[in-house]
């Protein structure tokens, strides 16, 4: 559906997007993550034909975004950041207008507008002035607009920006519903949102793609192996030394919590350390209060990749 190869965009000599390549298959829901200013919006704008690239090639649904821009734009539903709308228009009026300029045939116009209104929970709002709507409803109007011509590909730039948790959940549910029929590129820096809705995640940093995989695999490969947290009561030096001696253990960090040692034990590979730790505790006659897996969240992976200066290696740490 999307094929981006060696995409580069420069502003006054600085590369905002630097040699980015990725593919999105039809039907995929891909999250596009990165800190502010990493080049997410620029990439989306190039995909939607709003900006031209400095170098590289971008194809959407087999059409080149530069030479066949109109064909591409017909197949894209693009929701720009903050969903810009004509505030002086009414919801129905606006959606009809957008449907017309997106070449929805007249005979299907009414049906198309009613359909997206239903989908986005706007059926009561047709006569409302957009300027009087709340942030959440405006976002829905923006989404309805992106959907009205039944595009193959949806590009959503921060669709839940500025929404309250309730609206947030509704939009997220809507996106998940849409994922059944559309290819979606979802740009966000709200990680749980991406983790819940996307099958694959692209992480971009300083204009470069630093990771591309499913959220689970990312956590696995980039989050290192397993982490186990154990609260053990025993002589601190002894505990630390013996834990370190366990097979597959990479590192042990300890903190004191009154009389307890709070240990964070990391293993190199996908090995569950808990039985070994338990056995060790029993053998030495120590006491055990807690023994849990403390695996990294996508957030940890994301922070690990996007903090720091250098570009982290792909797939490594």
């Amino acid at each position: 559906m999307i094929s981006v190869s060696h995409l580069t965009k420069r502003y006054r000599g600085t590369a905002v997007v630097d040699d980015v390549s990725f593919e999105v298959e039809r039907g995929e829901v891909v999250g596009f993550l990165g800190p502010n200013g990493a080049g997410k919006t620029t990439t989306m704008r190039i995909l939607a034909g709003y900006l031209a690239a400095t170098g590289g090639q971008v194809r959407v649904a087999g059409y080149d975004v530069v030479t066949q821009s109109l064909e591409v734009r017909r197949r894209i539903g693009y929701l720009p950041e903050t969903a810009p709308l004509y505030l002086e228009m009414r919801v129905d009026e606006y959606l009809r207008y957008r449907a017309r300029i997106k070449r929805v045939p007249s005979r299907r116009l009414r049906q198309a507008v009613a359909g997206v209104k239903e989908q986005c929970g706007l059926h009561q709002m047709g006569r409302e002035l957009i300027g009087r709507l709340s942030r959440g409803y405006r976002q829905r109007v923006g989404l309805a607009d992106a959907l009205v011509h039944d595009p193959d590909l949806l590009i959503l730039d921060e669709p839940t920006l500025g929404l309250d948790p309730n609206q947030n959940r509704q939009v997220r549910e809507l996106i998940r519903e849409l994922a059944n029929h559309h290819t979606i590129l979802l740009c966000s820096h709200i990680l749980p949102e991406v983790e819940m809705t996307c099958k694959r995640v692209l992480i971009i940093k300083q204009g470069r793609i630093v990771a591309s995989d499913t959220p689970e695999r990312l956590k696995e490969t980039l989050g290192g192996g397993n982490r186990v947290r154990a609260h053990i009561k025993g002589p601190a030096d002894d505990v630390e030394r013996k834990l370190n001696a366990l097979p597959h253990v990479q590192s042990v960090s300890m903190k004191r919590d009154e009389t307890w040692n709070v240990c964070l034990i990391e293993s190199l590979r996908e090995v569950d350390l808990r039985p070994n730790v338990f056995e060790l505790v029993v053998r030495n006659g120590w006491a055990l209060r807690e023994l849990t897996l403390a695996n990294r969240s996508l957030e940890d992976v994301y922070l690990g990749l996007t903090l720091g200066d250098g570009v982290s290696g792909r797939g490594g740490r």
């Binding site: 109109l70 017909r74 903050t82 923006g142």
Partner: peptide, 14 residues
């Protein structure tokens, strides 16, 4: 200023 130029120019219009 309002940013609507972005939705206008990404619609399939020359």
């Amino acid at each position: 200023k309002a940013g609507t130029i972005e939705s206008l120019m990404t619609a399939p219009v020359e």
